[in-house]
């Protein structure tokens, strides 16, 4: 249970970074932290105490032993790929913004209003 709470705390840390921070790079790091916390959460869902790897063919020693749920692991793999794409996309836009405005400060990047 403590792990789930820590996971939630990590999510909140990421959300804090997104909402409070003024630097584009720090906002991106906030989004990334949120992704990691959700990935961690998905892994925790599939975790079984003293579980083994879910792989066929099973070695003799592992027959009839509990194994961890493989589905969340597959989900996390997919989510990591998506997270990679999100982060890369955000970074490339941030670099372009830096070229246009000469700053990473989000307060000074304000051509859109209303």
């Amino acid at each position: 249970m403590i792990l789930f709470i820590l996971c939630f705390v990590l999510f909140m840390v990421g959300l804090y970074g997104v909402i409070i921070k003024r630097n584009l790079i720090k906002i991106i790091i906030g989004v990334a932290i949120m992704e990691y916390s959700v990935n961690l959460f998905l892994i925790l869902i599939g975790y079984v105490n003293e579980g083994n790897v879910p792989i066929l063919p099973l070695p003799e020693a592992l027959v009839n032993k509990p194994f961890v749920d493989p589905l969340p692991q597959a989900l996390v793999l997919t989510a990591i790929v998506i997270g990679l794409a999100t982060t890369a996309m955000l970074l490339s836009i941030a670099i372009r913004l830096y070229r246009k405005y000469g700053t990473f400060n989000i307060r000074k990047i304000n051509s859109l209003k209303g």
């Binding site: 990679l84 890369a88 490339s92 670099i95 372009r96 830096y98």
Partner: peptide, 13 residues
């Protein structure tokens, strides 16, 4: 590609 694109972007900046 992602890495190279970011490297190229950075050098251009």
């Amino acid at each position: 590609i992602i890495f190279m694109a970011l490297a190229v972007f950075k050098d251009e900046v």
